[in-house]
Amino acid sequence: MQETAPPADHPKTRRFIRWLSLVVLIAIGIAVWVHTRHAGPTKHGAQAQAVGVATATSGDMPEILNALGTVTPENTVTVLPQLSGYLTAVGYKEGEMVEKGQFLAQIDARQYEITLQQAQAQLAKDQAALAQAEADLQRYAQLNERKSIAPQTYADQQFLVKQQQAAIKADQAAIAQAKLNISLCHITAPVAGRVGLRLVDPGNYVTVSSQPGIVVITSVKPTTVEFNVPQASLSRVMQRFHSGEPLSVAAFNGDNNKQIASGVLYAIGNQMATSTGTIPLRARFANDDEALFPNDFVNVRLHVDTLRNVVLVPTAAVQSGAPGNFVFLVNADRNAVSVRKITIGQTDGKNTVVGQGLAVGDTVVVDGVDRLSDGALVKLQGKAPAH
């Protein structure tokens, strides 16, 4: 026979309900106690964060403009033949340095020597004709005084003498041209520099201004570097450039970790590039060690000026966010920090100039800033690092 559940007012049922209620109350009490134990420290005070700090100091900061530059030779000359003929000799080695006036190549000059001889023969002929015409003119002058010849005959002889004199000048010009042609067969370097690879071999027939030419000469010592600066910096550069003091320029390698040459700014372009808002500048380098190779790319640092007695902080202390540029300033009690908005200026990577917001002697956080917020408690680690 099936048993029936005891009624709700049965003694066993009442005892079970009381025990169940007691267990629930104990569980709630334990949960409240655990929550209060773990939430207590957060509610009553945050834990101090260990941070590294530095002190704002007064010092000098070089005002540097960084740019990407191209090594641009002062002279790049393509040597072209100025007359036609067979190339009989080449007097340089590919890639070597040549001096101005050094022999480069020889064109067969025999046909121009023959032309010179012809011009010299024509000169001798015309000189003899002039001598004869002058002798006749003297006789005609005597006869004209005696009225023995017509005046027209005497006048014609005078014109003939002038024609012979002009012919001699033309012969002399032809001789000079022939000599010039002979000298142009002997091709020399118009500038000093490094020659490139040979463009034409001996035995080839070259013509006037034939391409690609005989050889290309590129000057390497000295050389220049061309680079651009932004429009906003132009007025400052112009002011310093026209003061008469040389503006030093340093060239660094492609990785920007090693200085390879030092020079001075010597030219500023005359037009702004509207597409980029920059203006070209050119610096000259002695390049005695040939560290700057033509058309190579280098990193340029133009030293415009030096800022004196400015407030400096380590660059690691400067943060950027919603307020703009700011630092975490250690409060006077040195137990907490506050966000201090600042304006920054020139930087050299290690230190940054602070225009407004800090004073010399202020302590700022340089290590551990990622865990901080305004009003956070801090614990200073060791001495403030020198910078």
Score class of each variant (00 low, 15 high):
267 A>M: 08
263 G>Q: 04
240 R>V: 09
200 V>D: 02
217 I>K: 10
233 S>A: 15
247 L>F: 04
223 T>V: 14
272 M>L: 15
258 K>D: 03
199 L>N: 03
243 S>Y: 03
249 V>N: 02
232 A>D: 15
267 A>W: 14
203 G>P: 08
236 R>P: 00
209 S>T: 10
214 I>L: 13
244 G>W: 05
270 N>M: 03
202 P>A: 15
224 T>S: 15
261 A>Y: 02
226 E>S: 15
272 M>A: 10
239 Q>A: 11
269 G>T: 06
256 N>Y: 06
252 F>A: 07
206 V>C: 03
246 P>N: 07
230 P>D: 15
197 L>Y: 01
197 L>K: 14
264 V>L: 06
252 F>H: 08
257 N>E: 09
201 D>E: 14
252 F>W: 12
230 P>S: 14
213 G>R: 02
215 V>T: 14
239 Q>I: 00
235 S>M: 13
238 M>C: 05
232 A>M: 04
263 G>E: 02
204 N>C: 02
223 T>W: 06
218 T>W: 04
271 Q>V: 08
269 G>H: 07
239 Q>Y: 07
246 P>Q: 06
272 M>I: 15
233 S>H: 11
235 S>N: 09
221 K>F: 00
255 D>T: 12
267 A>I: 02
197 L>F: 01
206 V>M: 07
219 S>N: 11
241 F>E: 06
265 L>V: 07
238 M>V: 08
212 P>V: 05
271 Q>N: 12
259 Q>Y: 01
260 I>Y: 03
245 E>D: 09
213 G>W: 01
203 G>C: 08
205 Y>F: 12
239 Q>G: 12
270 N>H: 13
219 S>M: 11
199 L>P: 05
201 D>K: 12
243 S>D: 14
211 Q>S: 14
240 R>P: 00
232 A>N: 14
199 L>R: 09
262 S>T: 12
218 T>I: 14
233 S>C: 00
258 K>F: 02
243 S>M: 02
244 G>D: 01
217 I>L: 11
254 G>Q: 14
205 Y>E: 02
195 V>N: 04
254 G>C: 00
264 V>F: 13
253 N>S: 09
220 V>D: 03
238 M>L: 15
195 V>P: 13
205 Y>T: 03
233 S>M: 10
200 V>S: 07
219 S>G: 15
208 V>P: 01
231 Q>I: 12
245 E>Y: 00
195 V>I: 06
218 T>S: 13
220 V>P: 02
214 I>W: 02
263 G>Y: 05
254 G>K: 07
244 G>R: 10
211 Q>T: 12
218 T>R: 14
236 R>M: 00
227 F>C: 08
205 Y>N: 07
226 E>M: 08
225 V>C: 10
250 A>L: 07
251 A>G: 05
261 A>D: 08
214 I>C: 04
210 S>V: 11
273 A>K: 13
202 P>K: 03
237 V>L: 10
268 I>W: 04
209 S>V: 01
232 A>V: 09
196 G>N: 09
197 L>E: 07
257 N>K: 12
242 H>Q: 13
232 A>C: 00
